[in-house]
């Protein structure tokens, strides 16, 4: 799963710490999501999408080829 969290966050000029606090997770989780190491739950994905005022599919891109 690829995502645009890092670019959207930088666009909005929000720190990882602040984003983590807003969506209710640790900074390490935001780092892992941005690096593509961790796929968030649907609840967390919704929270992130809501914060950036975007649809989930605009932020998280499912890549079937990479998944297989």
């Amino acid at each position: 799963m690829e995502n645009n969290v890092e670019s959207l966050r930088k666009e909005k000029k929000v720190s990882q710490e602040d984003l983590a606090s807003i969506v209710g997770v640790s900074r390490q989780t935001i780092i892992s999501i941005e690096k593509g190491k961790y796929n968030p739950s649907i609840t967390l994905a919704f929270k992130i999408a809501k914060y950036f005022d975007k649809k989930i599919e605009d932020i998280f891109i499912y890549n079937e080829e990479k998944d297989n």
């Binding site: 983590a20 606090s21 209710g24 997770v25 640790s26 390490q28 989780t29 892992s32 961790y38 968030p40 739950s41 609840t43 967390l44």
Partner: peptide
């Protein structure tokens, strides 16, 4: 307190 709650409720930590 907020930091602590974010850490213990963190889904990645629980995973």
């Amino acid at each position: 307190r907020e930091k602590y709650l974010n850490r213990v409720n963190d889904e990645r930590v629980n995973y």
